[in-house]
Design a protein around this nucleic acid. Structure first.
Length: 899
RNA sequence: GGGCUCUUAGCUCAGUUGGUUAGAGCGCUACCUUGACAUGGUAGAGGUCAUAGGUUCGAGUCCUAUAGGGCCCACCA
């Protein structure tokens, strides 16, 4: 065994192991009836995406669960893949076309789509390559894409099934239209932001009268599309006006005053202009009006914008072909000039914007496809409420419930080219065409002819489907659905979904709905909602702020393991994380600590023989340190497993950190040194070292899910391993609470207390580290003194004590510093070195601390209702505490007197 | 308007079912290059647990209100 470098060098180790794992097929998952499956599907990143620090957290958590379960012996599948990301990808490619001096319309649909595929081939795998740098142990042989053949088939199948069950329908409705992306988007894809604007009060004169009505609006330009003015039917002020006609300014059209319950009489003037083609509420008013109106009086919405939100031919000529905001200015100016503008008051309101490009959404009347959500939501709600699907943290259940119970139909058609084409055809027909031919033909594959008239002249629906319409099938479409595959039967339902709470509606809720609908089972059992990563000022990471760190740079500087450990350590379940690259020093230092503990073992293994100590066997030559560290190992492993079972991954990382740094390195390694460098026989030394290596190896296994590269490297270095053997597939230590050695833990804690007391004396009294000191001990129980004597070696190494003797005389030895420990006192003679006032203040501080606790306890015990009502166990505890405080105080006082 | 969440050391955060005078990391102070590690070691300073009530023998922990921060949903033109 050769000695390894002094500092851990991550890049070299990371580059070496990842290809080994992959080429040995260690990430591969196959149906195996003899093993329990454990499945996670990756939230498929967009092909346009690059790795962010948010992904790092998300991916690390998944990898921790996957590696942990794999080591526990599960057949572990981590299904990777990417999302075609309709709008995002189309935008990216369109931009590149602009740079080439062309655009998609010039190219035509087919060629454009080919271009997108080219782009995907070239850049779409970037983020997947980046995931490997992090150590993600996905089964790459199964990598899927939401537009690959199988998944496209799943999308078509889903569409047809839902259509056949009447859960998909087509209709003309007001949708959220993005004038920049030229497509409809769903309600969930609209972000509302506050905006300073005005409320314009406009005068509409009555036909054949000098009177007028005044309406208030935030969108004066839409008045060109007004078809009515509405008042509340019970509003006494305006009741008499209902049915009268108004002359619409600028347009000159006559429009009626109508009544509708939705009008709020207390807002503005209590009169509302009605623009059914460009306002969802007005559309509803219009619909209600038409229900009660006879055919002759029905109101037809008048769309005044084209798909770019520029005015169309429905408006007077002078306002045509204007952007809606320019049209607004023109309309307001003319209203003012014509004396129609009553007033303009400043007004702050919320404006909906496109989640993709931030363009103000235009409510737009158009034919779209919708999914009827209510029937799907019912079951999806109950499986979360009854715990079939569990959320971590649980509070997201409330958010989910709220959305599910107020769910609205989902607009799934998009006026894009990149995506799954709606599997619907229309009969273009010929003279044989019948009325039935107008019905859409919904089919899994292109029909040869119209089922009604037999015409072969069919036209496919131009629209594509919302990207989420493929994502919501992800947990089962990736396993082969709609076919009944072995993979699907074995790996589905999946176990854990790890994702951000920001897509709970977009994705999580819809997957549950789709899963229940087509597989009859939930898509996953547990949903772990990750933290949102922010910068140190609490701002969201964003490209425009430039506060989004590049994880690859961080990996280069600190190492993938350091980044993984740090991010998990920083991210408690359900809390936001304030992140800065420098925080990775924590993980880097930890990695280096682990590295050097291994280095210590390797150096010693090189010099002497190492006995093969097997975990779990009776321990030869075990002394206190050995018994203690074994005990600590078992409780750490048990606690770690429990934390992971409960999804307390951040707590798990703390458990590991504390054990490795404080128990193993600070105490155990230092104690082992005493025996390795002491005068133990070679045979004993070899067992002591062997055991240290065994504990260390077990610890590497515990750490492996968090820090895969480093642990593999060290685990491989310590013993010769066979070809194909990896820590990845070693057995994860379970930890056996029955092997917690209470006696050893107590004895160790006594020794630690004594050593800490001596260190405190040394520190507070400025005894130089080079100065050896001796120790005098006085205990009522001779066994306690014997314990200290027995471990003289430890005191020598850890407190630089050169000799221990008993001291029987009363009081404090002259020229010494002392401390009270459990069951007695220890003294450090400091002839010539002792600073009396320093020693006095040190003891006084201790005394006042103990006195405080003593008085507190006395107060409690004198309180009759405490003694009466508190559990007897607690009262007993307080009594014994009181005793021990009392003794300590007496001893400290007597020390002060001697001084 | 409805819902969720947070407020503990200078900073970032732990604190399980209420039970020692509250812990960690970073930062700070002092000392230490002792044969794994200065990406280290030892010691130390530093907190009226946002505020006000309440429940309780006992509250950082449970309840109510208030203040301040964050998030989500809805949205009256």
């Amino acid at each position: 065994m050769s000695v390894i470098p002094k500092a851990y060098n991550p890049p070299e180790v990371e580059e070496r192991w990842y290809p080994v794992w992959e080429s040995r097929g260690l990430f591969r998952a196959r149906v195996n009836a003899g093993k329990k499956p454990y499945t996670i599907v990756i939230p498929p990143p967009n092909i346009t995406g690059i790795l962010t620090i948010g992904h790092v957290l998300n991916i690390t958590i998944q990898d921790v669960f996957i590696r942990w379960r794999r080591m526990q012996g599960c057949e572990t599948l981590w299904m990777p893949g990417t999302d075609h990301a309709g709008i995002a990808t189309q935008n990216v490619v369109e931009k590149s076309l602009v740079r080439e001096g062309t655009n998609r319309h010039e190219l035509g649909r087919e060629k454009f789509i080919a271009k997108v595929w080219d782009w995907k081939k070239e850049y779409g795998g970037t983020i997947i390559l980046q995931l490997r740098k992090l150590g993600a142990s996905c089964d790459w042989e199964r990598e899927r894409f939401t537009m690959d053949e199988g998944l496209s088939r799943a999308v078509q199948e889903m569409f047809v099934r839902l259509y056949e069950k009447k859960l998909i329908y087509r209709g003309k409705y007001i949708v959220n239209w993005c004038p920049k992306d030229h497509t409809a988007i769903s309600d969930d894809e609209v972000n509302y932001t506050e905006q300073q604007s005005n409320l314009w009060h406009i005068r509409y004169p009555f036909v054949g009268s000098d009177e007028w009505a005044v309406v208030a609006t935030t969108r004066p330009e839409t008045m060109l599309g007004d078809t009515a003015v509405a008042v509340h039917p019970a509003d006494e002020r305006y009741r008499h006006l209902i049915g009268r006609k108004l002359r619409l300014p600028l347009a000159g059209r006559e429009i009626p005053v109508i009544a509708d319950e939705a009008v709020d009489a207390s807002f503005g003037t209590g009169m509302v202009k009605v623009t059914p083609a460009h306002d969802p509420n007005d559309f509803l008013i219009c619909q209600r009006y038409n229900e009660n109106a006879d055919a002759a009086h029905r109101m037809a919405p008048i769309p005044i914008f084209d798909t770019s939100a520029r005015t169309n031919d429905a408006v007077p000529e002078k306002y045509r072909s204007l952007d809606r905001f320019i049209a607004r200015k023109a309309v307001v100016a003319d209203l003012e000039a014509g004396g129609f503008l009553v007033k303009t008051e400043p007004y702050t309101h919320n404006v909906g914007r496109c989640y993709r490009c931030d363009t103000v959404i235009e409510p737009y009347l158009s034919d779209q496809w919708f999914v009827r959500m209510k029937p799907l939501a019912e079951k999806a709600l109950s499986v979360v409420q009854d715990g079939t699907v569990r959320f971590y943290p649980e509070r997201w259940v409330k958010t989910y419930e709220h959305w599910m119970t107020n769910i609205r139909d989902w607009c799934i058609s998009r006026q894009l080219w990149w995506g799954h084409r709606v599997p619907v055809w229309y009969c273009v027909g010929d003279d044989r065409c019948m009325l039935e031919c107008r019905a859409p033909i919904v089919a899994r594959t292109r029909p040869a002819s119209c089922p009604h008239c037999g015409s072969a002249n069919l036209r496919q629906d131009e629209d594509v489907l919302d990207t989420w319409f493929s994502s919501w099938l992800w947990p089962f479409s990736t396993l082969g659905w709609p076919d009944d595959t072995g993979d699907l039967r074995y790996f589905y339902p999946t176990d854990t979904l790890v994702t951000g709470p920001d897509i709970i509606f977009f994705w999580v809720a819809r997957m549950i709905m789709a899963g229940l609908e087509v597989t009859g089972d939930v898509p996953f059992r547990h949903v772990y909602f990750t933290s949102i990563i922010r910068d140190t000022q609490g701002r969201k990471m964003s490209k425009s702020l430039g506060n989004s760190p590049d994880p690859l740079e961080v990996i280069g500087e600190y190492g993938a393991d350091a980044l993984r450990f740090t991010i998990v350590y920083l991210a408690p379940l359900g809390q936001d994380v304030l992140y800065a690259n420098e925080k990775c020093e924590m993980g880097r230092n930890f990695a280096n600590k682990i590295w050097n503990a291994g280095r210590f073992l390797l150096m010693n293994a090189g010099e002497s023989g190492v006995a093969d100590v097997t975990p779990g066997l009776p321990d030869a030559h075990a002394d206190l340190a050995d018994r203690w560290i074994l005990s600590r190992h078992h409780s750490t492993a048990a606690a770690l497993n429990e934390a992971l079972e409960k999804f307390e991954i951040n707590n798990a990382s703390k458990i590991l950190y504390d054990f490795v740094w404080h128990d193993f390195c600070d105490w155990y390694v230092e104690m082992v040194k005493g025996r390795l460098y002491g005068d133990e026989p070679a045979e004993v030394r070899s067992v002591v070292l062997g055991r240290a290596i065994m504990i260390y190896e077990e610890t590497m296994k515990l750490l492996h899910p968090f820090m895969p590269f480093l642990t593999e490297e060290l685990w491989q270095s310590l013993r010769p391993r066979g070809e194909g053997v990896s820590i990845m597939v070693s057995e994860f230590p379970r930890g056996d609470r029955a092997r917690i050695d209470t006696a050893a833990e107590e004895e160790m804690s006594f020794v630690q207390d004594c050593i800490n007391s001596i260190r405190n004396i040394r520190g507070e009294l400025s005894v130089p580290p080079s100065k050896e000191i001796s120790l005098l001990v006085r205990f009522d129980d001779p066994a306690a003194a014997a314990v200290i004597m027995k471990y003289e070696g430890y005191f020598r190494r850890l407190a630089r004590v050169s000799g221990i003797r008993e001291y029987r005389a009363p009081g404090k030895p002259p020229q010494s510093a002392g401390a009270v420990v459990r069951g007695g006192e220890i003294f450090v003679p400091l002839e010539g070195l002792i600073d009396l006032s320093a020693e006095r203040s040190r003891i006084e501080k201790e005394l006042s601390h103990v006195t405080g606790m003593y008085e507190n306890t006395i107060r409690k015990l004198q309180n009759a209702s405490f003694v009466d009502k508190a559990p007897s166990k607690i009262v007993e505890q307080e009594r014994s505490k009181l005793e021990s405080f009392k003794t300590t105080m007496e001893k400290l006082k007597s020390s002060l007197e001697t001084l």
